[in-house]
């Protein structure tokens, strides 16, 4: 579904990762690990097509990715249902019922998102993935501020997504109980290169 070869990414003008390679096919999950600042977010943003890679290639259809960032992307003055319906319409998907049940949001659906707790808002943000209809989920710290029950809810949503032929790439610190390969980013930390290529010849 996505194949990455010899990928290098940079934050600002500073290269953070080099030589990253992996492939994820349908039904698989890839879990990225690494200390803070190791480039997880940068890598995920690159995969989502928000920033161009420094080098290397990403094979896969960017139109097949759904990206969920650190930030919730939830509009606080809209209700839960309105938030989801908006994204469903943007992605051309009808029906938000599955997403609401999947993340246990039915009881909250007419509540204004601003009145939700941080964890509930996070669930709403993750429920958005289910109305995108995209097969590859790119998740950046999806479990932030979720309680144990909600983490389980999320894990089962991911499992269901994988069973349905989807795939997921996520950066997370906690063990979700999702069977997936773990990719430690530490070995890919960008070393000093002798080539001037990425500094425009300033070195």
């Amino acid at each position: 579904m996505i194949e990455v070869r010899d990928l290098g990414v940079s934050r600002g003008a500073v290269p953070v990762l080099r030589g990253v390679g992996f492939s994820v096919s349908a039904g698989e999950a890839l879990i990225l690990q690494g200390p803070n600042g190791s480039g997880k977010t940068t890598l995920l943003r690159t995969l989502a097509g928000l920033q161009p890679p420094l080098c290397g290639e990403i094979r896969g259809d960017p139109e097949d990715c759904a990206y969920a960032a650190h930030a919730d992307g939830v509009k606080l003055t809209l209700t839960v249902a309105e938030n989801l319906e908006f994204w469903a319409r943007v992605f051309g998907v009808t029906g938000i019922a599955r997403a609401l049940t999947g993340f246990d949001l039915e009881a909250l659906q007419d509540r204004v998102a601003g009145g939700l707790s941080a964890g509930q808002r996070r669930r709403l943000s993750l429920a958005r993935l289910m109305v995108t209809g995209r097969r590859l989920w790119i998740l950046d710290e999806p479990t932030v501020s979720l309680d144990a029950a909600s983490v389980q809810l999320f894990a089962s949503a991911v499992r269901a997504h994988l069973r349905g032929g989807g795939a997921a790439i996520m950066a997370t610190h906690i063990d979700l109980g999702i069977e997936g390969r773990v990719l430690d980013l530490a070995p890919f930390k960008a070393r000093l290169s002798q080539s001037d290529a990425d500094d425009g010849g300033f070195l």
């Binding site: 990206y67 992307g73 939830v74 606080l76 943007v90 051309g92």
Partner: peptide, 14 residues
């Protein structure tokens, strides 16, 4: 931008 919607819109099929 602040609540992250802009990133999501940029990755949406629009």
């Amino acid at each position: 931008w602040e609540d992250g919607s802009l990133d999501l819109l940029a990755t949406a099929p629009l």
